[in-house]
Design a protein around this nucleic acid. Structure first.
Length: 565
RNA sequence: GUGCCUGUAGCUCAGCUGGAUAGAGCAACGGACUUCUAAUCCGUAGGCCUGGGGUUCGAAUCCCUACAGGCACGCCA
């Protein structure tokens, strides 16, 4: 990978006698392009070299040997400002992008390593709403990013498909439900039954006992109970699949909570034999006082397991099955303590790979400031949201581009893209207040804006049609709009790497906005399809490079890159 | 009460491994479509970076503290 910063650092480090890495990390981008492309603040050097920053900067200007990498250097009040050799830089960057095409920015650093990513994990028999969207799209994007970096990813949907809630559901179904309605209304009917159960149980607490009894039957393998459970599960999964299809999200495994039912006893024994379990108020816990954490609950006083038990079991299973390099959990930040606790327990059990367990938390979603509450009905169903986004897109398309073929498909890609992008465009740790008007806004910093920009690049390239770009004369790419665009293009590989290291898809979304803005400015100010053949060719090369990068970036955050919109 | 997270333009947010005058988008206002898709572009306006201390040549960024909001803190996940 071509990295101009490293090259410059390589030249400078000889002059000031520091390591390349030191200089590399000190180099920064000046706030204004007029001040150059890179800058070295000399204030820190001043301590080492015992000279004033101003003098160091001007000495650097004098002593640094000429090179093809940069055109000139200037000393400005303690900063060494570096102006790159534009021609050289443009050639290197564009050739790399055009050579690697949509693989520009990818890498093989993950070659031969497995990454397990646990995301989405909705609860069976509950509607899939916008609260589930975050885990799903963040996990999906991380999957794509790690894959792009050469890792082999295993996407796991750890379904909430086991627990006493199924006992409740069975009771409610048998008392107030019927097969036809459930077949017809699916999850919404299951939800209705579930809510009804809670209403009735307030009046008649014995229902709770009944529910527990049914769950016990499930655990003991009772046929009727398991058949109902299986039915609810299949029904829910079919509904979820619709949403996953719309989002373009896939999984390699659907091993959920039920999958680990028969595997937890061994883990409990393991914990016991390692002397980690102790009794407290009738329950079995792992004491974590030494680590300044509340205890981790392993067994309830009735002997049944808890989610920490299941998570530890699942982690061990995944290590044995996938031999992961990292196992990543994408869940709400409310679960931070829980993950800290059982990660610690896993470490105490002697599993050195406990350090490879990573919790990737994200902020809470509320609806226009109001808390999400499934039972109170304050939810926005994801399917509704996506459908609304698609139909709004279709409306816009009817107005702007009515002759476009395959409108339906593209409207889906753009509408859903808008929703996904919206969710991925800010820092994942921040709480989100869902707003209809924002989720359905297609102007400015949005998914459709990036997709539109991509379509623009395609459109120009299409119009230029049979021309083969082949070689181009980089010296013709000379104005500031073009140069800025190339600079932004050059940043893509490091942004992808950063997004991976920080488990932060928004780094890519933000980058795409920047790239699209730079392109649109260029597009607006410069004609691409000019008569001058070689100028035209050079600009087309630039457009081609932008197209590859936008397309690759969009895919990394789970959006498609339609050629026309 | 204790711990974790967040606080930047009217709104939504970048910037947070310290660096030059704090940036976008939305909303508002004013411009640019006979010309490669105006889902675009350009301009105007909008800021005690929550308050207070400290560290530093330099702080939105690091440390302490106060305040505000959110979340978590044993038998749900």
């Amino acid at each position: 990978m071509f990295d101009i910063r490293r090259k410059i650092a390589g030249i400078l480090c000889d002059v000031v006698d520091l390591s390349v890495d030191d200089i590399y990390s000190m180099l920064e981008v000046p706030p204004d392009p007029k001040m150059g492309d890179l800058a070295l603040p000399c204030f820190k050097l001043s301590k080492i070299l015992k000279k004033s920053p101003v003098i160091i900067a001007s000495e650097l200007v004098e002593k640094t040997p000429k090179s093809e990498y940069f055109e000139k250097m200037q000393a400005v009040s303690g900063y060494l400002n570096i102006f790159l050799n534009r021609k050289f830089f443009i050639r290197e960057v564009l050739n790399e992008v055009l050579d690697r095409k949509e693989l520009y920015g990818s890498s093989d650093i993950g070659k031969g390593k497995n990454i397990v990513i646990d995301y989405s994990a909705p609860n069976i028999a509950k509607p899939f709403h916008i609260g589930h969207l975050r885990s799903t799209v963040i996990g999906n994007s991380l999957y794509k990013i790690f894959e792009f970096m050469g890792y082999n990813c295993i996407g796991v949907n750890h379904l909430g498909d086991w627990g006493t809630q199924f006992g409740k559901l069975i009771v409610a179904y048998k008392k107030w439900g019927d097969r036809e309605t459930v077949e017809k209304e699916k999850i919404s009917e299951l939800m209705r039954l579930y809510v009804k159960f809670h209403e009735e149980a307030e009046k008649d607490p014995s229902l709770e006992d009944e529910a527990r009894a049914w769950f016990t039957k499930m655990e003991k393998g009772d046929n009727e109970a398991l058949e109902l459970w299986r039915w609810f599960r299949e029904l829910s999964l079919a509904e979820f699949s619709k949403v996953y299809d719309m989002l373009g999200v896939t999984f390699d495994s659907f091993a959920g909570e039920s999958f680990y039912e028969d595997k937890m006893q061994a883990v409990i024994k393991d914990l016991e034999s390692k002397g980690l379990l102790e009794e407290s108020q009738g329950a079995m816990i792992v004491n974590l006082e030494k680590y300044d954490m509340p205890p981790c609950l392993i067994l309830k006083k009735d002997g049944s397991t808890l989610y920490a038990t299941r998570d530890i079991t699942a982690a061990i299973y995944r290590k044995n099955t996938y031999n992961f390099d990292k196992c990543i959990y994408v869940t709400a930040s409310a679960q931070c303590l829980h993950f800290k606790q059982w990660f610690k327990v896993t470490g105490l059990m002697g599993y050195e790979w406990a350090k490879d367990l990573v919790h990737v938390p994200f902020g809470l979603v509320s609806i226009e400031g109001e808390k999400l509450a499934t039972r109170k009905g304050n939810v926005v169903l994801l399917e509704d949201l996506l459908n609304k986004a698609v139909s709004k897109t279709l409306e816009i398309m009817e107005e702007k581009n009515p002759d476009l073929p395959d409108k339906e498909r593209i409207a889906k890609e753009v509408g859903i893209g808008a929703v996904v992008f919206n969710d991925l465009s800010n820092n994942r740790i921040k709480d989100i207040s869902f707003s209809w008007s924002e989720a359905l806004n297609f102007d400015g910093e949005t998914g459709p804006y990036v997709q539109y920009t991509h379509a623009r690049t395609c459109s120009v390239l299409h119009k230029a049609c049979c021309e083969i770009i082949g070689s181009f004369d980089e010296s013709l790419i000379s104005n500031d709009d073009e140069y800025q665009l190339v600079k932004t293009l050059s940043l893509f590989p490091e942004k992808v790497k950063l997004a991976m290291e920080e488990y932060e898809p928004s780094i890519i979304s933000r980058y795409l906005i920047d790239l699209a803005q730079d392109f649109n400015r260029f597009y607006h100010n410069q004609s691409i399809l000019v008569d001058d053949k070689s100028l035209r060719n050079a600009r087309l090369a630039l457009v081609q490079a932008v197209k590859y990068t936008l397309s690759a970036g969009l895919k990394l955050i789970g959006l498609s890159a339609p050629e026309r919109v």
